[in-house]
Design a protein around this nucleic acid. Structure first.
Lengths: 158, 158
DNA sequence: TATAAAATTAGAATGATTACAGGGAAGAAG
DNA sequence: CTTCTTCCCTGTAATCATTCTAATTTTATA
């Protein structure tokens, strides 16, 4: 089952309607490796859905998060929440300077997941495994330019 | 070295002044197992420092995060960023219903940390290892009351 | 004590996210 | 194909955690 199909299916199973907007948002989430923000999704889809509202994007994301189909990574130094439709155990590496987020696979996360589900007593809905720091490129840039990496705490944050 | 001493030391090493406010914030962060928000820190310290400003709390937290002495966990469903002065590898379990965050020790996080530092090429400044879901108590509550768990995405988030 | 640099403070500004209200579309049933 | 019900979308207003700013106070140093 493709990632998109998984997202659509979780909506269907929850008895929610598969509107064109929701389908487009799911598709974008599934196919993007960008860990998009609500604003990025909105801007990307706006040409195809001129009447699209930011509120719809937020609503859909909220639903998907609540269903456990999408994880909220929180802000990556840009004051906006990033979303990840890949709920397989993996790590996200965020650069606090250029705000990019990349995936980093590790077998240990798999074990972690199983350990928590098995022994914590929590009903796990999602995870936020995010390491933040300076990516290789920005380490070079900042060591040359002596520019401070910026980091804010919104989010919110979060 | 106590956790408080570690925090104060990282300020000192960075050439920053150890003002009474900063010392109090460090002490609270070090001794609390609550993963406090800026607002919680402010409220707790206000009686002892009647002139304390929220801006000071945010400034100090920002400095400590930038120095890698404190991690930002992001919001736990309450729209505010939570902070964690325990930078030893461990997992945070957040309940999206009661907004409490508890620690969960696991040897795998240790391995994870080492793997990332060794092979990712990133200069790691901090981590946000947060699983969210329903804690045992809230699972009971919600299964009785059928009350939806709430979760928002602010960020900020986080 | 005088001086300069760094911190603190109060309050205003910012901006991502949420709440709200009215209008539309989708499905069920006849 | 209509009606009914329910859910969804949209635009806008409101919220509120966080950041910014300018002025004042504290600190370190000599």
């Amino acid at each position: 089952m493709t990632e998109k199909a998984i997202l659509l299916d979780s909506l269907r199973k929850a008895g929610l309607r598969l509107t064109p907007q929701r389908q487009a948002i799911c598709e974008l989430l599934a196919e993007s490796r960008e860990h998009p923000t609500a604003a990025m999704i909105y801007e990307t889809l706006k040409p195809r859905f001129p009447s699209l509202s930011l509120a719809t994007v937020y609503n859909t994301l909220e639903v998907l998060v609540r269903l456990g189909a999408v994880n909220v990574l929180g802000n990556a130094g840009d004051g906006m929440a990033h979303y990840d439709a890949d709920t397989d155990p993996h790590i996200n590496l965020a650069c606090v300077s250029c705000h990019k987020i990349v995936d980093f696979p590790s077998q240990y996360v798999q074990f972690l997941d199983e350990e928590i589900s098995a022994t914590s007593g929590y009903r796990v809905l999602g995870a936020r495994v995010l390491y933040y720091g300076l990516c290789p490129e920005c380490q070079q840039k900042t060591s040359i330019a002596r520019k401070e990496p910026d980091y804010d705490h919104r989010g919110n944050n979060a």
